[in-house]
Structures are given as C-alpha cells and as structure tokens.
C-alpha cells in the first residue's frame, strides 16, 4: 500500500518507516502545497494526515490568513496559531477541492467532539480519524480497512 504521509516534521514518516515497513510504502509531504504537488504526479492508495503544522513557514500554510485574523479581532498571532492547529483540515479541504478522492486518515482525537466530526465526515468523503495514542499497529489496521 502506497501512503502519502502529510506532516510538518518527520515523526510519522520515520516511525512508520521503522515499524511498518512490510506491505507499506511511505512518502512524506511537508506541507499542504507539497502534498498537492505529489498527488498530481504520483499514485497513492491513501493519505495519512497530521493535524497540527507549527513548523512550516507561513507561506506554506493553507487557509486565508486575513479572513482568519478577522475571527480574532485582527490578531495575526492568534490567526496563525489557529491555521497551524487545524492545518490538517485545511489540507483535507484542499485535497478534496483538487479532486482527490483518496481515503484520508486524520491523526486527531475527535472522540470527544462527535458532532463536529460528523459535520466534517459528511463533507469530506472517505475519511477516518485516530487518536494521538494510536500505535503503529492500529494505524496499519485503519489503513488496511480503507483498502477493504
């Protein structure tokens, strides 16, 4: 299974490469724009998407900075933090807008926010989530479930 891992660091790509080498090929994209570029030129079976992106330059964050700042009385610092904290969902929306219908696994615990997850799920096609404490085996299980 060829999986595009979208994360701002290297934690997932390194750890999954270390512990889940059999049956999986992991390709890393460091930001939303890079993910879109990679999806344009290669074939993948699924996308594994981190939620928080606080290590990428502002220029590579997806989302409208000006409109977001307006959510916080024009405070750019809060706006940037908001875009970073929810960047995974901005990337997900951009993937769908670009016509990507691949199943996406989001690394964020929506377990306590069921109503919100329901709103996202109904809009964003084949998508699932797993909490932060999921082990590599659980991640592999979720991804395998996609292919079934």
């Amino acid at each position: 299974m060829r999986v595009l891992v979208v994360e701002d660091g290297y934690e997932y790509s390194e750890t999954l490469g270390e512990f889940l080498a059999d049956g999986f090929t992991w390709v890393r994209a460091g930001s939303g724009p890079e993910a879109l570029r990679l999806l344009d030129g290669s074939t993948f079976d699924a996308v594994f998407l981190d939620m928080r992106f606080d290590r990428v330059p502002l220029a590579e964050l997806l989302g409208d900075m000006e409109a977001t700042a307006d959510r916080f009385n024009g405070d750019d610092v809060q706006a940037r933090a908001f875009l970073e904290d929810h960047q995974g969902l901005f990337v997900l929306a951009a993937l769908r807008e670009a016509g990507c219908g691949l199943p996406v696994l989001v690394s964020y615990d929506f377990g306590n926010e069921e109503a919100r997850w329901e709103r996202i799920r109904t809009r964003q096609g084949p998508v699932d989530y797993l909490p932060d404490n999921a082990s590599p085996a659980v991640i592999a299980g979720k991804l395998a479930a996609f292919s079934r």
């Binding site: 997932y12 750890t15 512990f19 889940l20 932060d132 404490n133 999921a134 082990s135 085996a137």
Partner: peptide, 19 residues
C-alpha cells in the same frame, strides 16, 4: 503533551516491544 510526547514518540513503544 498529547501531541508531541504521546503521539510522536510513546505511542510507538508497543511496536518496539513486539519487535
């Protein structure tokens, strides 16, 4: 703590133990 400590590092310890 949940994101940087558990998610990025400790959650992989079970796989390490299995190995």
């Amino acid at each position: 703590i949940r994101h940087e400590v558990i998610k990025h590092n400790i959650s992989s310890v079970p796989a390490l133990v299995d190995r």
